[in-house]
Write a protein that binds this DNA or RNA. Structure first.
Lengths: 226, 226
DNA sequence: GCACACACGTGACCC
DNA sequence: TGGGTCACGTGTGTG
């Protein structure tokens, strides 16, 4: 049986290229493959040699299809998790595991701190509530454009002369923990300067700004003023 | 070489159990394994028979370790994605793919409507802001217990005689789109009745309730009252 | 018997 | 050169 194993092994290199033709070729040369050993070593157990050869072939083809199915899934997984190109199979799966865990973790604590981590890409949610002024929106737009973030969503609502803005921004690519803190603090700083430009604090005691997990919520600031 | 292949195949069953001992045994019986064929069939190409046997053994062991690594990752993945027990390898990977896609999709639309979907399991975020009263919390606790949801997170803050609650709740299992709507609306209804029990609306004009995407935000209600 | 899925050892290839 | 990964065919078990 060992011999037939080896013989078919070499033949199957061709069967991959030629597809079904190889079956005919294989069936024709089936005897040759088993020739090197004199006696019918183990193969005598089953039916005619041609039949067992055909069965073996369909078996290997099925196995090949199975491998292709698995590997195609692995490549789509590779495209789904970042930086997994040219990574070995086991490492890819390990990365998929941590990725799933990360995503799952953030799915169960939504909106806790206004920031979501997605495998190196960060989402920052900032909200801002203050008195309205003529060019506030233009100011905000400029400020956001100068940040190393792209704005995914923005919500603006006004009521009674006050304006409330909410943004969801994301880093352009993967960032380290340190870069994350720098970006967040600079975003906070920038939005704070926008607030300062609205009016002097003593004239606008009810402004609020939320960025990252430290939030001066609109609820708090408005309640304390009432 | 075919013979050695078959011989090692049977031997490896032991090597798995006995580990390194099998190598010694193998070195000692190396000749015996290849004995059945008289001439040095194919093995003449490389070094001493014992050497090639040792190489082959370490090779197959390395491959076995590789398989174990991959499979262990697959089993942890199986524990991570729901309903993937007793599922074939390819299907498992397919499920992992859709799972990752789902999680990713909801990671990029955070907090949009206070509800996150996770493969049939729904997260509902509800927040509630009103005047405090003695047994408000007990009332809330009862109300939530009667909903077909489990509470994942709860935040309570009070300020100036007002109380603000935030809950993240999840369905116990997978639910359909229709069930989702029913659950959400019943949750909204239940929480609304809690608010009504605080005081008559005319005495508590600044109560707010957020559930699902229709949100009477604290900002709106508080601003309108100021 | 047939179809399917898995683990295994092995040749080829790459550092 | 070894130590690693990969694809392959095959043996084997399950339905």
């Amino acid at each position: 049986m060992g011999e037939t194993s080896f013989g078919f092994s070499s033949f199957n290199g061709f069967s991959q290229s030629f597809g079904f033709n190889a079956l005919v070729l294989d069936g024709g040369k089936g005897e040759l493959v088993r020739a090197p050993v004199g006696p019918p070593v183990v193969a005598g157990k089953k039916g005619t040699p041609a039949a067992v050869a055909a069965a073996l072939k369909s078996h290997s083809e099925a196995e090949r299809r199975r491998r292709e199915r698995i590997n195609s899934h692995l490549t789509t997984l590779r495209s789904l998790v970042p930086c997994s190109d040219k990574m070995d199979k086991a490492s890819l799966l390990a990365k998929v595991i941590t990725h799933v865990k990360d995503l799952k973790r953030h799915a169960t604590e939504p909106d806790e701190d206004g920031m979501h981590v997605n495998n190196g890409i960060f989402l920052i949610r900032a909200s801002l509530c203050c008195e309205d002024r003529p060019d506030l929106l233009e100011d905000l737009k400029q400020t956001l454009a100068n940040l190393p973030l792209k704005t995914l969503r923005a919500e603006i609502s006004t009521l009674g002369g006050r304006v409330r803005n909410m943004f969801v921004m994301a880093t352009e690519g993967k960032v380290t923990e340190i870069e994350r803190h720098l970006i967040v603090s600079s975003a906070h700083q920038a939005l704070k300067s926008v607030l300062d430009r609205v009016a002097s604090p003593e004239f606008s005691p009810r402004s609020s700004l939320s960025c990252k997990r430290r939030r001066i919520s609109s609820f708090d600031s408005l309640s304390s003023s009432s």
